[in-house]
Amino acid sequence: MKYIDEPAKLQQEILKKTYSLALIPLIYSLIRGEFATLLGFIFGLLIATLIFRLRLIQIERALDMQEKKASTFIRNRYFIEYIIYFVVLFVARKNPSVNFLAAAVGLFFVKLTVIGLVMIDIIKGSLEKKLESYR
């Protein structure tokens, strides 16, 4: 993984990869003409991006605190995030022009990208090891 020591750059990189991966469902739903799915997906992805960026800021703040204080801070911030997710999903379900499941998938998309990147890393590492052993 590149930029392991620079979280801000790594975050930009992950977001770029997320958006380029998100083009596939976006274009697919645009071609199919399902605008509710398109809107829901964009909605979920936007909220996921904002929360991803918020988390980095929160962690930077928490690292300068005492141990107990930091853990309560992060826990309380997670509960606030949980309420935000609830409101987002509630709005997506209530509004007929936004697809609920597409919004939920959009919320998971950053996570999917991270897992995909790690899988690529692991496969690359094992292939390199095999090449070394053949030499």
Binding site: D5, P7, L10, L56, Y82, Y85, L89, V110, V114
Partner: peptide
Amino acid sequence: ITTMLLGQVISGSTGI
């Protein structure tokens, strides 16, 4: 910070 960030991204999803 990188470890924390990636760990939080993964662990937050059970709540969703």
